[in-house]
Amino acid sequence: MIRALVADPTIALTMRLTMVPEPVPRQGQVVIEVHHASLNHGDLNDARSGRIPPGGVLGSDIAGVVVRAATDGTGPREGVRVVALAQGAFAERVAVDAASVATVPASVDLSVAAALPVAGLAPLRTLRACGSLLGKRVLVTGASGGVGSFAIQLAAAAGAHVIASVGSVERGAGPREAGADEVVVGLKGIDTPVDVVLDNVGGPQLVQAWSLLAPGGSLQSIGWTSGEPAVFAPYATVGPQKALSSYLTTGDAGSDLQTLVHLVETRVLTVRIGWRGSWDRFAEATEAMRQRRVNGKAVLDVATPGSMRTAQYSDETA
């Protein structure tokens, strides 16, 4: 048996640490000993909404070491440091499709790699879908979080003029450091149409962002942290052609994860860790995220109890 963080709708936290059976890998899967896991807003929603059934293991983002290679010879061998996108990732050991695993060089800390899968794949793939960004105006909403930070850096590296939208003046420092050309609170002060929107907020702000799109523009809906409905006025979507696209991380992730790891290794991409601590203190991390007190990613240390660190708030980057 191993420890895991599972959904439990009968308690206020909607999740708890408990014992679950050891993973049994299928063909084409490796078993990873998890050293670090990254907590996402989606994990909190999964625990509350019932999308993960009671007793189901939560989580998607992990980094650690392969302890059992795939029997078909695919993927990394035993002892290799890796990052992975995996269903039911918050456990001491996890069976993962080899096609959704990337290797991590010694120069990249595993705690940093753990922050990459969900928050890095969304902007990487949606920005890629928008074509060339050189000289384009890109608006990123919810820009002070982990997804927003990656989106700003990737868009800026592609030559875009990046506008970061945050919830308060105090949350503007991180986006500026990530490379945003402009930082606004809400959408105030944006008086020139934008070509691309990466929206993490949803609700009324998504509707307003749609109205800011230039003809031919693209709005990529990659999150919905507001939890509020988006209500469009009659005929709001009738006019010059522009697109609103939904996004969900699906399919094999290994190749894109390897790209993200390379961007971290070459210092094109910086990972901001705003909360880090033992997964025994997951309640602290979830509460901080729900109260919007984490600037960047929240990383849980899963490894052995002797190696776990005290939870801390920081501006740690790598």
Rank of each mutant, 00 (worst) to 15 (best):
G59N: 06
S60M: 05
S60F: 11
S60T: 09
D61R: 01
D61T: 02
D61Q: 03
I62Q: 09
I62V: 15
I62Y: 02
A63S: 15
A63V: 01
A63I: 05
A63F: 03
G64L: 03
G64N: 04
G64R: 03
V65A: 02
V65E: 06
V67R: 12
V67T: 15
V67Q: 13
R68L: 08
A69H: 00
A69T: 01
A69L: 01
A70W: 05
G73E: 06
G73F: 10
G73T: 05
G75H: 04
G75F: 04
P76L: 10
R77Y: 00
R77W: 01
R77K: 07
R77C: 10
E78W: 04
G79P: 11
G79M: 13
G79Q: 10
G79V: 09
V80N: 04
V80G: 00
V80W: 03
V80E: 14
R81E: 06
V82A: 08
A84Q: 06
A84E: 08
L85P: 00
L85K: 12
L85W: 13
Q87C: 13
Q87E: 13
G88D: 13
A89F: 04
A89Q: 12
F90R: 00
A91R: 10
E92Y: 06
R93Q: 15
V94P: 11
V94S: 08
A95K: 11
V96S: 09
D97I: 01
D97T: 14
D97H: 11
A98F: 08
A99G: 13
A99I: 11
A99K: 14
A99Y: 07
A99S: 08
A102Y: 06
T103P: 05
T103D: 10
V104G: 10
V104T: 09
P105K: 03
A106D: 14
A106W: 08
S107E: 15
D109E: 15
D109K: 11
L110R: 11
L110W: 10
L110P: 07
L110K: 10
